[in-house]
Structures are given as C-alpha cells and as structure tokens.
C-alpha cells in the first residue's frame, strides 16, 4: 500500500510539471471565472425575478425551452425508458416520446424560470468543461506510462521491492485522481461563484462528476494499455485524441446524416449503427448523459455505460497483463 501511495504521489508531482495540465487548469479557471462574472441578479420578491444574464436578455425563452427539452430526455432515461440505436435513428419516434415528456414537465414542474435559466447555463458549462477537460486530460496523461517505461527508468523502479501491479495501479489511480480533483475543484468554484452571484445554489451540477470521471477513466485506461504496449507517448497522444474525437463525433454525425435521409434506403445502416452503439465506448452519449445529470440526476443510459465499462475493464486487464509479462 505504501509503494502504491508513493507512485500515486509521484504521478501528481509529474502532472504538476506538465504544460498541458497547467493549460487545463488555467482554462478551467478562466472558464469558471467568466461564467461566474457574467450573471447579474436583479432581486425581486422571493426568488430572483429576473437574472440579468447577458445571454438571457433576449433568448431567455429559448434557454427555458432547452431546459425543458433536456429535462424531458433525462427523465425518460431515469424512468427506465431506453434510447437505443433505433430510437436515435428514428427522429420522428424520438420526437414523439420527448414531446410527451415535455408536455408533462410544462404541466407539473414548478421550477421558476430564472432558476431554469441558471440550471441550463450550468448544463451548457458542463458540456464545455467536459469536452475541453477530456481533450486536455488526454494530452496530459498520454505520456504518463511511456515516460515511466523509458529504458533506464523502469529497471530502477522494478528493482524496488514492489510488485508490477502496484506500479501500474499507482500510476493509473494517481493520474485519474488528479483529473478528478481538478474537475471537482472547477465545478465547486462554479457552484459557489454562481450561487453567490445569483442566489441559485444548484447542487445538481455535481451530478455531472461521476460520469465525467468514468469517461476519463475509460480514456485513461485505453491510454495506459496503449502506453504499456507501445511505450510511445506521441502515439498515445495521437491515438487518444483520434479515438476520442472520432468516437465522440462519429455516431452524432452519422445520425444527423440519417435525419437528412442520406441513408434512407440503406438496409445495412441499421446494422452499422448497432455495431457503433454497442461495440464502441460512445463518449458522445456519455457526455450527453453526464451533462443531463446536471438537470435531472441521475441520468444514465445503460447500453453506452455498459459498453464503456466493458472497454474500461478490458483495457485495464490488458494493460496490467501486458505490463506484468513484458521484459524491460
């Protein structure tokens, strides 16, 4: 346990020296600061009568509508409705189900409009933080394992009375913990800052964390496995970014093409969509559900979660197996 902790702490120290990580923290701080600085409150009786967000001066209704739509989708998922590939491909069917949920929310939900606007801004902020932090985390962590495995460095490490499993686990958990702390701190700053400015203390913003950290864990496990297998930091970086960006956008792009009718006569499309949906860790959907949790926690769609969890376990299993069997 001690050795695990030593490796863990060293990974933190290593991370502090990385330009990419510093950039990540600075960007997150700037983003949080900007978001906090933008809202201004005009107090009314009871709840704030109007939140004078620069963006809400005109399109407050649009934001509220977005809040209703996002809540509707999240509630459907929470109540066990299953969005499978067929649902996503059938825009009409999806719209019908969402429409019913929206109507129910409009009828029964009593959340005041100013609060809805603030919550949807939390949601949009979570979307930004999710994507940006994930890309920068890939940049920061791609070199963790290859750096540790450099000739002349790994031998000295392995010569210590610690097991390879401890070395791998320390490096993995250390890197992931660092990301978790950085992201948690960002959301805490945003929560406190916007709460002080608007009087809306929306704890739901923290529900984004489990899925966001889970997504980072999946990506980092893939990078760890690749790093152990290739010992090439640049390759890890390129594959990590490529994998995330491709997987994150591929399904969304293809679905949009489907909505446009590009694949209307292609019977193979359904099979391809299922392969994508059930075969690859769909980071786009994970992000969507993580951010929807800000409004209606918890929001989890099990197929993408289960697929990503399987990838996580496989990547960790392969990484530890490879690390334990490789000659250095």
């Amino acid at each position: 346990m001690n050795a695990l902790w030593v490796i863990f702490v060293d990974t933190w120290r290593q991370s502090r020296q990385q330009v990419v990580l510093i950039v990540l923290l600075v960007l997150l701080a700037l983003m949080a600061g900007a978001w906090i600085a933008l809202p201004r409150t005009i107090d009314g009786p009871g709840e704030p009568a109007r939140i004078g967000l620069w963006i809400s001066e005109g399109p407050a209704d649009f934001l509220e509508e977005l809040w209703v739509g996002t809540c509707a989708q999240a509630r459907l998922q929470r109540e066990g409705e299953r969005f499978d590939a067929a649902d996503l491909l059938d825009a009409g069917r999806l719209e019908l189900r969402l429409g019913a949920a929206k109507a129910e929310i409009r009828l029964h939900d009593t959340t005041p409009q100013p609060r809805r606007v603030v919550e949807i801004l939390f949601y949009l902020l979570a979307q930004l933080i999710f994507t940006l932090s994930m890309l920068l985390f890939i940049g920061a962590s791609a070199g963790y394992f290859p750096g540790m495995l450099e000739a002349g460095a790994i031998e000295a490490l392995l010569a210590r009375p610690i097991s390879r499993l401890q070395v791998f686990a320390g490096k993995y958990v250390g890197g992931l913990a660092l990301y978790t702390v950085a992201i948690s701190a960002t959301y805490l700053i945003v929560f406190v800052g916007i709460g002080l400015r608007t009087g809306v203390w929306h704890t739901g913003v923290f529900f984004v964390l489990p899925l966001q950290v889970f997504t980072a864990a999946v990506l980092y496990a893939l990078l760890a496995a690749l790093g152990v297998a290739t010992r090439n930091g640049l390759l890890c970086l390129l594959v990590g970014l490529g994998f995330y960006l491709v997987v994150d956008t591929a399904l969304a792009t293809l679905l949009q093409l489907e909505e446009l009718g590009v694949f209307a006569e292609s019977s193979a499309w359904g099979v391809a969509a299922d392969v994508l949906y059930f075969g690859l860790p769909n980071f786009g959907l994970l992000k969507s559900h993580a951010c929807a949790s800000v409004l209606a926690a918890p929001s989890v769609a099990w197929p993408p979660f289960a697929v990503a969890a399987a990838w996580l376990l496989l990547a960790l299993a392969f990484g530890t197996w490879k690390f334990r069997r490789t000659d250095y």
Binding site: V6, R13, Q14, G147, E150, A151, G152, A153, E155, R160
Partner: peptide
C-alpha cells in the same frame, strides 16, 4: 540496483530522486 544509463524523472532534483527511491525502498 544501478541500471545502465539510468534515467530519472526530469521534474525531480537529485534529492527528490533519492527521496522517491528511498520511499519505494
């Protein structure tokens, strides 16, 4: 153990390298 052409983390100084390996020991 002294490896051939030892490499140490670039973000550490000489004492930190020894402290790191000392803790592992």
């Amino acid at each position: 153990y002294l490896p051939e052409s030892p490499r140490f983390p670039r973000y550490l100084d000489a004492m930190q390298v020894c402290a790191y390996h000392g803790r592992l020991a």
